Deep mutational scan, measured.
Amino acid sequence: VTLFVALYDYEARTEDDLSFHKGEKFQILNSSEGDWWEARSLTTGETGYIPSNYAAPV
């Protein structure tokens, strides 16, 4: 399992994006889409796309 942590807060701009807060942890589901990764929040259980430059490996 690849775990990442949010470096900044992010507010979803589309219904496919995932809103999150700094410090929140994610499981990365798909990182082959370039700058946007499909991720599941370990806090909320929700799935959506996150900007890859807002996350770092745990």
Rank of each mutant, 00 (worst) to 15 (best):
Val1Met: 13
Val1Gly: 14
Val1Arg: 10
Val1Asn: 13
Val1Tyr: 14
Thr2Met: 14
Thr2Gln: 13
Thr2Glu: 12
Thr2Arg: 13
Leu3Asn: 05
Leu3Phe: 13
Leu3Asp: 05
Val5Tyr: 12
Val5Gln: 06
Val5Ile: 13
Ala6Arg: 00
Ala6Ser: 04
Leu7Phe: 04
Tyr8Arg: 09
Tyr8Asp: 06
Asp9Leu: 03
Asp9Thr: 07
Tyr10Asp: 00
Glu11Pro: 04
Glu11Asn: 10
Glu11Ile: 14
Ala12Pro: 05
Ala12Leu: 02
Ala12Thr: 04
Arg13His: 10
Thr14Phe: 15
Thr14Pro: 01
Glu15Asp: 13
Asp16Leu: 14
Asp16Ala: 14
Asp16Phe: 15
Asp17Tyr: 14
Asp17Gln: 15
Leu18Pro: 01
Ser19Thr: 10
Phe20Gly: 09
Phe20Asn: 01
Phe20Lys: 00
His21Lys: 15
His21Glu: 09
His21Arg: 14
His21Asn: 10
Lys22Ser: 06
Lys22Phe: 06
Lys22Ala: 12
Gly23Lys: 00
Gly23Arg: 01
Gly23Pro: 01
Gly23Tyr: 05
Glu24Cys: 04
Phe26Trp: 02
Phe26Tyr: 01
Phe26Gly: 02
Phe26Lys: 00
Phe26Met: 06
Gln27Arg: 07
Gln27His: 13
Ile28His: 00
Ile28Ala: 02
Ile28Pro: 03
Leu29Trp: 07
Leu29Lys: 06
Asn30Val: 08
Asn30Asp: 13
Asn30Arg: 07
Ser31Gly: 10
Ser31His: 11
Ser32Arg: 11
Ser32Gln: 11
Ser32Trp: 11
Glu33Tyr: 12
Glu33Cys: 12
Glu33Leu: 14
Gly34Gln: 11
Gly34Tyr: 09
Asp35Trp: 08
Asp35Lys: 09
Asp35Tyr: 12
Trp36Ser: 06
Trp36Ile: 07
Trp37Leu: 12
Trp37Phe: 08
Ala39Asp: 01
Ala39Gln: 00
Arg40His: 09
Arg40Val: 14
Arg40Trp: 08
Ser41Tyr: 03
Ser41Thr: 04
Ser41Arg: 13
Ser41Met: 08
Leu42Gly: 03
Leu42Tyr: 07
Leu42Cys: 15
Thr43Met: 11
Thr44Gly: 02
Gly45Thr: 03
Gly45Asp: 05
Glu46His: 12
Glu46Cys: 12
Glu46Gln: 14
Glu46Pro: 01
Thr47Asp: 04
Gly48Ser: 01
Gly48Leu: 03
Tyr49Lys: 14
Tyr49Pro: 01
Pro51Tyr: 07
Pro51His: 07
Pro51Trp: 07
Pro51Arg: 06
Ser52Gly: 08
Ser52Pro: 07
Ser52Val: 09
Ser52Asn: 06
Asn53Ile: 09
Asn53Thr: 11
Asn53Arg: 11
Tyr54Lys: 04
Tyr54Leu: 11
Tyr54Thr: 04
Tyr54Ala: 15
Ala55Pro: 02
Ala55Val: 15
Ala55Asn: 02
Ala56Glu: 11
Ala56Lys: 10
Pro57Thr: 05
Val58Gln: 08
Val58Asn: 06
Val58Tyr: 13
Val58His: 08
